[in-house]
Amino acid sequence: MTVTLRGWGLLTAGAALLAVGFVFGYPELAMLGAVAVVALVSALGHAALKPVLAVSRAVDPDRVSRGEGSTVTLTIRNIGRFGAATLVAHDRCGWGTDSSATVPVPLLRLRRGRQTDVSYPVPTSRRGVVHVGPLQITRRDPLGLVASTRGHGDTSQIWVYPKAHLMQAVPAGISRSLDGRLDRVPHGAITFDTLREYVIGDELRHVHWRTSARVGQLMVREHVDTSLPRIVVLLDDRLGSWPAFTAMTCEEFESACEAAASIVTAAVREDLPITLQLVSGNAAGSGRVRGSARALLDLLAEADLAQRDEQALVTATNRLRQFRPGDTLIYLTGTGGHGDLALVTGLRGPFPSVAVGMLGPRLPLEPESVGVLMLRAEDGAEFAAVWDGVARW
């Protein structure tokens, strides 16, 4: 609850009139001062009355690509005991921690027991996470002396994904034979992985009867595709790798996010396991759920540029060298990160295939390929075209 400038002015004038009236014996001035003070006290009591509202929120859809439409629908019901309410309401709708972006929500003569529905579009012009809510309702007295703002309802989030450009090609898998040779194959080779409990829908021909008899419950053999291409995308989110960064965004980094989204979409379309890792340390993978890229695209929507530790890339490459979650590594960076390419090219031992995607404007002196596949592009669309033009990974 806050007192407006008009309220402070009225309080000051009322106090002055009371003082002058009592000191110099002017009862009329004292009465005017008392009326001013009583008006402010009444305004405080009016603003203290909390409107009793039930607010529900629906977002359709809550995950969209950049530029696509999303709508927030608010359902507000007056469940108070008193009459109609006319209030000033604003719903927060902004990026990240920005709480200044609001949308006006008209609440005119909302009678007791009645409800109103208000819809508005969500801004999706840029990649990121849009935070919506809570609904801020401001109650003012008729004279505008006091204002009280309270939050109502829950909050929601809308993930705005980067654009994904169509890619036809995917890297080939690595098949390890018994004599140690490495053969690239476009499809997988099924092999036994582990035993697990039977679930409804499993084929009976996969039941391991000897183990089932020993443990007293049905156990089935689970197979994996050892030569299925496993793709790892390492996205450079260090501020120093993107020299064109401004206070809000960086178009070159947005192009890198589009390139990563294009790779993720192509891999999921082909039912290939893929892992996305940021240099800052956050990571997501498709896991065992085929055909779903939600976790990876959510991570891309949440990614931002910030001042990272100088050893962040060293830590990321050491982690990849130790755990090696795939056999094809794609490193996406900007023109400011060409000085650290040696750290990534050092992963050619653990990873049979390493590619570097560099996004940003062309330079007078372009960096060399340093012994790995170099995918040079200015934006996400050009990166997709360069990707499809690769003859062999």
Rank of each mutant, 00 (worst) to 15 (best):
G14F: 12
Y331P: 01
A48D: 13
R63M: 01
I174Q: 11
G173A: 05
G113H: 01
L145V: 05
R348G: 12
L297G: 04
D141I: 01
I231W: 01
Y331C: 03
R150L: 03
T71W: 08
R290E: 13
D236C: 07
H152T: 00
A164G: 01
V207A: 11
M374H: 08
G337T: 07
V233L: 06
S212I: 05
R294N: 06
I200N: 09
S255I: 04
M248W: 15
A385C: 03
R238N: 13
P352V: 00
L32P: 07
A381S: 10
G83H: 00
M219W: 14
L18E: 09
M248D: 14
N282S: 15
V390W: 02
V103D: 08
T138M: 02
D60N: 15
A284P: 01
L108R: 05
H165D: 02
G25C: 02
V72I: 07
T124M: 08
D379G: 06
S241R: 09
S255H: 13
V215N: 05
D179Q: 09
L296Y: 00
W159C: 04
V314L: 07
L145Q: 14
T97A: 05
L204E: 08
A84F: 12
L11E: 14
P364N: 14
D271Q: 15
D202C: 00
V35I: 06
E203D: 05
G371T: 04
L299W: 00
A377K: 06
E203W: 03
V354R: 09
L359D: 09
G80V: 00
D91Q: 15
V185N: 15
R288C: 14
L5P: 00
L235M: 07
R205A: 13
H90Q: 09
L17K: 09
R319V: 07
P106R: 10
A283L: 14
T226W: 15
G326H: 07
G357R: 01
V199D: 13
T265C: 09
Y198H: 05
L18W: 02
V41H: 14
H90L: 08
G380Q: 06
Q322P: 04
G334I: 13
L365W: 13
G188I: 10
E258Q: 11
T86F: 15
N282Q: 14
I231A: 03
P61Q: 14
R77A: 07
L218V: 08
H131Y: 01
R140L: 08
R214W: 11
T75S: 08
P352L: 03
S175L: 06
R210T: 10
L87Q: 03
L299H: 00
L53H: 01
S353N: 13
V59A: 07
R150T: 05
G339W: 11
G389K: 04
A266W: 13
V132D: 03
V356A: 11
R290H: 12
L107N: 01
V344Q: 12
G380L: 06
F323P: 13
